[in-house]
């Protein structure tokens, strides 16, 4: 399959290793990966912070960039949620019918990485090897917007050598919330601190998720508390190979 990668601005800038891992997994499974170079940002930060008008040109450029792609894959549950659930609203706010039609065309073709693997590529065993104790945090947008369900765990369970342990109270939000982390940093940190305590209780070496944004928040708290637990996007675990 020919897959267009939407890397997301956040991963592009701060977590290129996640993108590289996605490419490695997809190519290992025999897919052709293309990277439309004009891509920038889905507009989630602007939209969720109340800057819907500022979001309009970003949505326009997104639909232009991915107009020709049959399948778009992104390693971020929250950005995919933004595209699929809210680009339509941005188009509505803009009053541009053409944009609304373009969004209706593009948005359903955009898939989160684990969704693509399980539902479209039809695999759970991606041939990965990762001999570590890992716990998985289902990020809220993956859980409740995209309804990823058990897909990420199914992929992780199939990894050779992995010791996957349950995270207590896993479905409770980590407290990141985009600009919430700054606007309401005290509450955000209080929630994140509770998440950290649960992660530590599992004895895991690695905390993984389908969103680097939440991992950056929890990982930042872990690092400040001098913990040795690493955070790692799920794609990087699925890219792991023997030797």
């Amino acid at each position: 399959m020919r897959v267009a990668l939407f890397i997301t601005c956040f991963n592009d800038t701060l977590f290129p290793a996640t993108g590289q891992a996605v490419v490695r997994v997809l190519e290992r499974l025999g897919h052709e990966v293309v990277f439309p170079p004009d891509q920038t940002c889905c507009g989630q930060m602007h939209f969720n912070t109340g800057y819907q008008r500022e979001c309009v040109p970003l949505v326009r450029s997104f639909v232009d960039t991915f107009a020709d792609a049959d399948v778009v894959v992104a390693p971020s549950a929250s950005c995919v949620g933004m595209v699929r659930d809210f680009h339509g609203r941005v188009a509505e706010v803009s009053g541009d019918r053409g944009l609304a039609a373009a969004v209706a065309e593009t948005a359903p073709r955009v898939h989160e990485f684990t969704e693509f693997l399980v539902d479209i590529a039809g695999v759970t065993d991606v041939g990965a090897y990762f001999p570590h104790r890992v716990t998985y945090h289902p990020t809220c947008h993956g859980l409740r917007l995209l309804k990823l369900g058990d897909r990420p765990q199914a992929l992780l369970r199939a990894v050779e050598g992995i010791d996957l342990v349950d995270l207590p109270d896993a479905t409770e939000c980590c407290g990141f919330g985009g600009t919430f982390a700054v606007k309401n940093s005290d509450v955000s940190v209080a929630m994140g601190t509770d998440k950290v305590a649960r992660v530590l209780a599992t004895g895991a070496e690695v905390l993984t998720a389908a969103d680097n944004s939440c991992l950056m928040h929890v990982g930042g708290l872990l690092s400040r508390s001098k913990s040795s637990v690493r955070v790692m996007h799920l794609a990087e675990i699925l890219a792991g190979e023997r030797g």
Partner: peptide, 13 residues
């Protein structure tokens, strides 16, 4: 309350 990893030299693109 949070550390941030140093941004990498090379972006994905």
């Amino acid at each position: 309350a949070r550390d941030t990893a140093t941004p990498p030299r090379r972006t994905f693109r």
